[in-house]
C-alpha cells in the first residue's frame, strides 16, 4: 500500500507538470479571451487532460496532506476528523472539475 501511494505521488506529480506545460503551450499560441478559454476546456486533448490532471492534483494533495497529518497529529481521533474534513473539501473540488467537463 505504501509503495502504491509513493508511486501514485510521483506519477500524479508528472501528470500535473505535463498539464501545466500543455496549458502553457496552448495559451502561448492564442489570444486569451472567452473563446480560447472555453475552447481549451472543450478540446479533446487539453480539456480531457486538464480534467485528468485535476484529479491527479487532488490525489497528490490528498497523499501529501495525509503524510503531513500522520507525521504531526498524534491523536487518532483528531487525525480522522482532519482527514475527513480535508477529504470532503477535495471531493467538492473533484465534483466541480467533472461538472465543468460535463457541462461544456
Amino acid at each position: 500500500m505504501g509503495l502504491i501511494l509513493w508511486l501514485l505521488q510521483r506519477m500524479s506529480a508528472i501528470a500535473i507538470m505535463c498539464a501545466v506545460v500543455l496549458t502553457y503551450i496552448y495559451f502561448s499560441h492564442v489570444d486569451f479571451n472567452f473563446i480560447s478559454w472555453t475552447n481549451y476546456f472543450r478540446s479533446p486533448l487539453y480539456g480531457t487532460f486538464f480534467c485528468f490532471a485535476w484529479c491527479a492534483l487532488l490525489l497528490h494533495a490528498w497523499i501529501g496532506v495525509w503524510t503531513i497529518i500522520t507525521d504531526y497529529v498524534p491523536s487518532r481521533k483528531l487525525r480522522f476528523i482532519l482527514l475527513g474534513l480535508y477529504g470532503s473539501f477535495l471531493m467538492l473540488s473533484a465534483i466541480s472539475a467533472l461538472h465543468i467537463r460535463g457541462a461544456i
Binding site: F34, T38, A61, V65, S93, S96, A97, I100
Partner: peptide, 26 residues
Amino acid sequence: GLLLAFIMPIMIFPIGYSLVSVENFE
C-alpha cells in the same frame, strides 16, 4: 505543498464560474 493543497482545489470554482458565459468571464 501544504499551501498549494489548500489553495489549488479552490481554484476550480472561479474557473468553472468563468466558463459559464461571456459575462461571467468578463
